[in-house]
Amino acid sequence: MDLITPGLGLVFWTVITFLFLLFILTKFAWKPILGAVNEREDSIKNALLEADKARQEMEDLKSDNQKILKEARAERDAMLKEAHDIKEKIISEAKEQAKEQANKLVEQAKATIENEKLNAITDLKNQVAALSIDIAEKVVKEQLSNREKQDKLVESMLNEVNLN
């Protein structure tokens, strides 16, 4: 029975030992343990705050990236449209210049052809006139070589002059 029910001395010394151990733990171990726990709690809170801040910054960066990407796409589309417009303008100007040059060449060719035609006609007239003079000269020489033919020629010319 003594083993089951503790004696008053045992309880007394157990309480004193417990209080002494509690005093030593409070004096030397409790404060550092609580400080470490509080420090750990603060570091966890700070880490959570930093994580929230980092998450918010990531969301802000993501939305900024979306805006920048949207602006870049709009700028690219504007540049492509401008380049297309410039290309169309250059092509139409080139076509117009080509038409103008072609028209000029056609007009020059027509003028050259007309000049060549006039030159050919003039040359032909000159050759015909020269041939006519040569033929007339030969005919007149032949007709004037004979006295009888000369008289007939003079008479026929006089008759034509009188009739007119």
Rank of each mutant, 00 (worst) to 15 (best):
A83V: 11
A78V: 05
E114C: 00
I113L: 09
N103C: 01
I113G: 00
K87D: 06
E82V: 02
N115T: 12
K89Q: 14
A94M: 05
I113C: 00
I90L: 11
K117R: 15
L118K: 15
M79D: 12
T112K: 12
K89M: 08
H84K: 11
E82T: 10
Q108A: 09
A78D: 10
E100K: 03
Q101E: 15
T122G: 07
E82G: 04
Q101N: 10
E93S: 05
E100T: 02
I90W: 03
V106H: 14
V106R: 14
E116R: 13
S92G: 01
L105Y: 06
D85H: 14
N119W: 02
E96V: 01
I113R: 02
I121P: 01
I113Q: 07
E93R: 05
L105Q: 11
K87H: 10
I86E: 15
A102Q: 09
E107M: 05
K99V: 02
A78L: 11
K117E: 11
E116D: 14
L118M: 12
A111R: 08
E82S: 12
A111H: 06
A83G: 06
N103T: 04
A94H: 05
Q108K: 07
A111Y: 04
A94T: 13
M79S: 14
Q108S: 08
D123E: 15
K117C: 05
S92A: 13
E93D: 13
E96C: 01
A120T: 12
K99R: 14
Q97R: 08
A109C: 00
Q108D: 13
Q97C: 02
K110T: 04
Q101S: 08
H84S: 10
E96Q: 13
K104H: 04
K99S: 02
E116F: 09
A111K: 10
I113T: 04
A102C: 07
A78Q: 14
I121W: 08
A102S: 11
T112A: 11
L80D: 11
I113M: 04
A94G: 14
I121S: 05
K89G: 01
I86L: 15
T112G: 02
I91C: 01
K99D: 01
K104N: 06
E114H: 09
L105K: 09
E88G: 00
D123Q: 14
K89F: 03
E107F: 05
N115W: 09
I90Y: 04
A78G: 09
D85Y: 12
E107T: 04
I121Q: 10
I91A: 05
D123K: 14
Q108I: 03
A94F: 00
S92N: 07
S92F: 03
E88R: 00
E114N: 09
E82I: 03
L80G: 02
K117F: 11
A111G: 00
